[in-house]
């Protein structure tokens, strides 16, 4: 982790209440896809922990869903606004543990870290199989970006307006040879995926309301088979065998 100043470079609407925000600054503390930044927004006491979608030497890309006043402010900040940021928080996905046949699964705004993960797997010579789930075609975003990476892409929508009608669990079941999952999305989705018998192991990204984001306040701890863990510091990625619901 380091404490840095990020400057807003752009914000564009991807769908409904989903935006892509690009920040510029020191990214040296970011080492793994699935880590997050904790942004100090003007007028708010607590920082906003937001998953990193992708990064390079000098920019960070975030996908932000408006969930309240803070995220509403964030996506509408003008280019040039500077944000005090705790960068490179959390443990991140480790695809080197994922074996030969992983599947990457993102649900809704949870697809954010899946993109950065897929790009790094591709760079390492692996063609990732990516399954994305949305409520409806009008809520879908980032499909072109995933295709541009050269991923094999599966899509499901709850209303069937795009891709398979159903849930990401149906997409995973359609590929029974896939025995390792790397995933981020809403809790009910994670729980349903966790229960799929075809998975021998996997990495699941959790979210929680956080106080500090760096492990000090234990505001975000959840029970695991190995005792209580801090979502911010010991996570946000937990491994299949340690998760309890």
């Amino acid at each position: 982790m380091n404490k840095v100043t990020y400057t807003i470079r752009s914000s564009r609407q991807l769908a409904g209440d989903i935006f892509e925000v690009i920040l510029e600054g020191d990214t040296s503390a970011i080492t793994m896809p699935g880590q997050f930044v904790n942004l100090d927004l003007p007028g708010f006491f607590l920082r906003r922990p937001i998953s990193i979608c992708d990064w390079d030497e000098s920019t960070v890309k975030l996908l932000v869903k408006i969930a309240g006043k803070g995220t509403d402010m964030l996506v509408h900040l003008k280019s040039g606004v500077e944000l005090d940021t705790l960068s490179g928080l959390g443990n991140g996905f480790d695809f080197t543990l994922a074996g030969e046949h992983p599947i990457l699964v993102g649900g809704g705004i949870g697809i954010a870290p899946i993109y950065g993960l897929a790009r790094r797997m591709k760079a390492a010579g692996i063609t990732p199989l990516v399954a994305l789930g949305f409520r409806s075609a009008k809520d879908a975003f980032y499909l072109e970006e995933f295709k541009a990476l050269g991923c094999e892409l599966l899509v499901a929508t709850e209303d069937g307006s795009m891709g398979m009608k159903g849930f990401v669990t149906d997409l995973v079941k359609s590929r029974p040879e896939r025995d390792y999952i790397l995933t981020c999305g809403p809790l009910p989705m994670l729980k349903a995926l966790h229960a799929l018998p075809q998975l021998t192991d996997g990495q699941f990204s959790f979210e929680a309301r956080m106080g500090c984001g760096f492990g000090a306040c234990v505001g975000c701890t959840i029970p695991t088979k190995d005792g209580y863990k801090r979502v911010c510091k010991d996570g946000p990625i937990l491994y299949k065998e340690e998760i309890v619901w």
Binding site: F45, L46, A208, R209, G211, V218, G219, T221, Y228
Partner: peptide, 22 residues
């Protein structure tokens, strides 16, 4: 073990916590 989630909330000029002496 402390209290169940969520334990943290925000307010103007501060925060609330109910960690529960974990």
């Amino acid at each position: 073990l402390g209290n169940p989630q969520p334990r943290i909330a925000e307010m103007a000029g501060g925060m609330l916590n109910a960690v529960g002496l974990q």
